[in-house]
Amino acid sequence: MSFETISNFIAAFFTLSIFSFLYKDNPFYKFAEAVFIGVSMGYAIPLIYKDVFTPFVYRPIFVESKFWILIPALMGSLYVFRFSKNLSWLSRYPIVFGMAIVGMGVPLSMHSYVLVQMRSAMLPFDNINTILIFIGTVSILLYFFFSREHKGVYGKVTNVGIWYMMVGFGASFGYTVMARISLLIGRIQFLLGDCLGLVK
């Protein structure tokens, strides 16, 4: 038995263990789930050490002698106090230091999510599609305005918004199904092709 066959057998075992959940929760699925959690987290540790800790903490301090990097490194190590009952307040410092970026988020989210979208919506009504997009955008925004009761003419307008959203959700649903089915096809191809050699 070649090394590749053993590797495929292990991958097939874990694939089938996960699929077994479709029948019901069982020890094979629980085992595969436990391995998946451990391996996923364990996979991140050496990569973070190599790609983040070494270039941004270890090398600046011990190779380039930038000793001031010790200050943020010590601040980062305060995260571990999150689990301490008496000293958990120390973990707030690295959290708030990262949280300060929200100051940038105010103008940037206003620009990219609101102003750019508004500018794209304000096109000349030179064809039916532009008018339909405008009606849809406005009716959806009105649907999310809860300070007024959705009844009468206003209710009818918000109802148009619901229909637009249903078509939008349908499109997203279709795309999600396609993506998941392609993953499923990939796994079936692996089981029937790479493992059993039934499909080329």
Binding site: V102, V106, V114, F144, Y164, G168
Partner: peptide, 30 residues
């Protein structure tokens, strides 16, 4: 047509709501 017209309108309406929500939450933190 579904992707470029009604879906675009739906996504745009939701994006505007998300943007306003993000701005409001960021301001509350700030």
């Amino acid at each position: 047509w579904i992707l470029n017209v009604p879906n675009l309108a739906a996504k745009r309406g939701i994006a505007l709501g998300v943007g306003l929500g993000m701005t409001a939450t960021s301001l509350k933190i700030l």
